[in-house]
Structures are given as C-alpha cells and as structure tokens.
Amino acid sequence: MAAPNFQGRHMRQPSKNTLLKVVILGDGGVGKSCLMNRFVSNHFDEHSFHTIGVEFLNKDIEINGEVYTLQIWDTAGQERFKSLRTPFYRGSDICLLTYAVDDRTSFRNLALWRNEFLYYADVKEGMTFPFLVVGNKVDVSSEQREVSCEEARAWCMENGNPPHVETSAKDATNVEQAFSLAVESWAHLEAKLDRPYIGDTVDLRRQQPEQRSSCCLSVGGNTE
C-alpha cells in the first residue's frame, strides 16, 4: 500500500507544450513570410508587403504524440534590416534557411545566412544546430527554375548535412511537412544530446540522410 504504487499511475498529459523558437532566414522576396503564414493560418497573400524588421506568429504542432508550440520569428531579408533582425537569433532552437528555387542568388546566399545566424545566435561551440534548408516556390515552371534539387542536396551535404525540403507557400506544397521535419530534426539532435552514448541515436543519424535523399517531395511521407 505504499504511495509509489500509485504515483506511477499519474500519467496525466502535461498541460504545457515544448516551446521551440524558430527563426526563418533568407534573402528578401524568397517567401519567408508567406511560408510562415501558410503554415500558421493556411493563408496565402499574393501581394504581401516586405517585412519590417520581424514578424511573429505561434502555432502548436503535434509530432509523434508530442505537442510543440512553435514560436516563429520571421525576419526581414533586406540588408538594411540586418541590425534589426540579428538580435532575434539568440536563443533559437531551429533555423530555417530559405531560398527560392527560381532565384539563384538567394541560393548562393545560403552560406551567408548560415554564417550570420551562427555568429549572432550564440550557439554553443561545436554544437550541431538544427537547420532546415527550404527551397520555396516549387510552383514555378521548370523553365523558371534556377536551382535544382540535386544541387541543393549537394550544398547541404557540404554544409553540415541539414535536411532539405522544397516547398510552395503558394499551393501549400510541403509547408506543414517542412516545419514538422524541422522539429523532428531538432528532436533527433536533442535526443542525441540527452543520451550521447546510446547506440540507437547513431542509427537515427544514419537513417536521416537516406530519408532525405530519396526524393525532394518524399518528405510528405515522413510525417504524421
């Protein structure tokens, strides 16, 4: 009749979700705000304004039975906003590096964005940070496409191997999945951090690239 017998049965769902701070970076005009708006309110505005400084939205997302509250900071891509957006990097859990598949420059700038983020985010040295590389605007015709999926993959392989996904905020392709993937990526890294010596985390790491390299759009099957 000891109390512990009963405590074990106290399996109430925790009322509080895991809070994750997500920062979306990328050149001006690649559709960062649209991605966020599509994800949060499933809404697309053809004529949205340039973001002033930052925007903020939050949304709950359930992954593998766990509910996460994403606090999403969308930043302004223009250079003149640089010193306005960088303060927001600190304390991020996830970073979305975005480019537009019809804009080669935005793709080339990924490295700059990545570096800017790492510089200002105060990420612990030597820590693998959960980035997600997002190629937006896959709705454009193949003639307009300037960055191929393979190319983007190759870049990822050379840059810490973050997961990659191609999306369209306009027709909602892979948007939800992109965020899910980001959270999963975070969860994997977190698990690895918590249990650094357990073998199965190694397995997870090994699996990941396989998942990703199968196909650009295969990502849809990974979630939910």
Partner: peptide, 10 residues
C-alpha cells in the same frame, strides 16, 4: 520608426 518597432518587439 522601423527600428523602434523591431527593437520594441525584441
């Protein structure tokens, strides 16, 4: 003003 807005958010 744009800066002010952003900094206030921060």
């Amino acid at each position: 003003v744009e800066g002010s807005y952003t900094f206030v958010a921060k």
